[in-house]
Design a protein around this nucleic acid. Structure first.
Length: 242
DNA sequence: CTTCTAACA
DNA sequence: TGTTAGAA
């Protein structure tokens, strides 16, 4: 059984025109052709498309999905959990250098968005108990996250890209700014971090830059109004809800 | 209905 | 990056 591009597009919920663009630009999905040159998509192609969609949902740019599909990376369900446990153990034992090394290595091995959502955020959750000892461990972990993120951001600046600023807006946990920055590394953005939690923001002083606002809590009417106001001033502004 | 390329937002 | 226009 095979499908024309139109049928296939409806089946997997991707525009036919987008499918062609993916094939042309990124070599994703190369269906057989009929004698007339029309694409014939197979059942396997459907599985491929689902995998691609998975990665895109996880925040990986379509342009970077290709190598991820080839990888036999059949990750066990508890793969992330064991990585978390290993990191946690090194943290508790005070093996800071070894912890730092493992985080850097993981960053090379996995897509950054996955590292953030599957490993670093859950790990921070595990050391969040309101106990002095735990608080100290979390400070150590946050320090490593911040320096690793800085390292990745520096790397991005060697390549061309749009300049962006990321900061918190109605946010209580400053480390989230760094995690969201880390998640966006390697995607052709040159990001600078405003690490504080300013009570008021004035993005209009750098209207040429793309602003990324990490926000927790509800997007109240007042906040939406503020966002509209900024955008009406021509400021490119993304709100990142947690 | 499909193909492609070029250009736009 | 996804979408559109236009020609075949």
């Amino acid at each position: 059984m095979s499908y024309s591009i139109g049928e296939f597009a409806r089946l997997c919920g991707i525009n036919a025109t987008t499918l062609r663009a993916w094939q042309r630009r990124y070599g994703l999905l190369k269906p057989q052709r009929t004698d007339g040159g029309h694409r014939q998509y197979s059942e396997d192609d459907i599985q491929q498309a689902l995998k691609i969609l998975d990665w895109v949902k996880k925040g990986v740019p379509v342009s970077q999905v290709k190598p991820l599909l080839a990888r036999p990376g059949a990750r066990r369900a508890n793969h992330w959990l064991t990585l978390q446990e290993t990191l946690l153990q090194r943290l508790k034992e005070g093996k800071i250098e070894s912890l730092r090394q493992l985080i850097y290595d993981s960053g090379r091995e996995y897509p950054r968005p996955e590292l953030v959502t599957e490993v670093l955020r859950p790990l921070r959750g595990k050391v969040s108990a309101n106990v002095p000892a735990m608080m100290t461990l979390r400070e150590i972990l946050d320090g490593i996250i911040i320096s690793y993120t800085s390292f990745c951001l520096e790397g991005d600046k060697k390549a061309p890209g749009d300049n962006a600023l990321i900061t918190g807006w109605h946010l209580t946990d400053p480390c989230e700014i760094w995690l969201e920055a880390l998640r966006r590394t390697g995607q052709g953005l040159r990001i600078d971090v405003l690490p504080g939690l300013p009570a008021i923001l004035a993005p209009e002083i750098f209207p040429e830059r793309k602003w990324l606002l990490v926000t927790s809590g509800k997007l109240t009417a007042a906040r939406k109004k503020q966002i509209d106001l900024w955008q009406q001033q021509g400021i490119s502004l993304d709100v990142i809800p947690l």
